[in-house]
Amino acid sequence: MDTDIAGFNMRQVMVSAASAEIKNGEVVFVGMRLPMLAFFLAKSLHAADAVGLYELGIARDSVAPMPLMTMGDLPNLSGSLWLADTGDMMGLLQRGLVDASFIGGAQVDRFGNLNTSYVRDKNGKVTRLPGSGGACDLASLGKRHIIIMSHEKHRFVERVDYLTSPGYGTGVEWRKEKGLTGGGPSAVITTLGVLRFDIKTGEMYLASTHPGVTVEDVLKNTGWSLKISDTLSVTRAPGREEIDILKNLDPGGFWTGN
């Protein structure tokens, strides 16, 4: 979509949609990059009282006083609620005190299992990706987690090559069988739409397409026969205020473009 005409681009729609997943007053475990922007946008709009936890050992109830490139930038430490150990943040998570978390992914499957470790191409060549970081922990232990990633056919696969961060495994009973205490993924926000999970089966379905995106675009870029919601809608386009806030949060457009 032409940014000049619409006034927004797809990355901004993604961040806006992700921020809408956060409710006011929630405790949110914030991941690297786009998730961080989504959290800040939520805090600037409808979730002013949300508290952010960061795996580095930071708890913070305010948006940093300057734009950040990453959560370890000093403005994100300055004036925080608590500077502590990674183990402290993980303890809060493991005790079930984290409402929502955001994670990015390289490969996802129909049950929301996420791979950020090893991918195999058609010829069997394995590419090594950075690994879990905290993603496995957030996906295992948070009450719900929101996945943010690029929607491409080689990323949306029938079954992940490696299960770094658990979704619903092979179906909705799987998490309980394995002993996982977290609730599992609640949404996948992509460059094309918002996907959610059928509570009866644990399978992902298309809930909304972003403005200007067709269902065919989504299906073409998904590696299994994706189910479509009966109440399919169009993702809400970010308004002027949101775009302005995003531009302040990411003034160089490094994450969300110009």
Partner: peptide
């Protein structure tokens, strides 16, 4: 994961052979 490496070193710090956690099951 960040939690398992924390637990590996915490076990080392405590002089224990392992630490339990709820992450990564499955």
């Amino acid at each position: 994961s960040n939690l398992t490496i924390t637990m590996a070193l915490r076990a080392g710090a405590m002089g224990l052979p392992f630490m339990p956690t709820l992450t990564a099951l499955g």
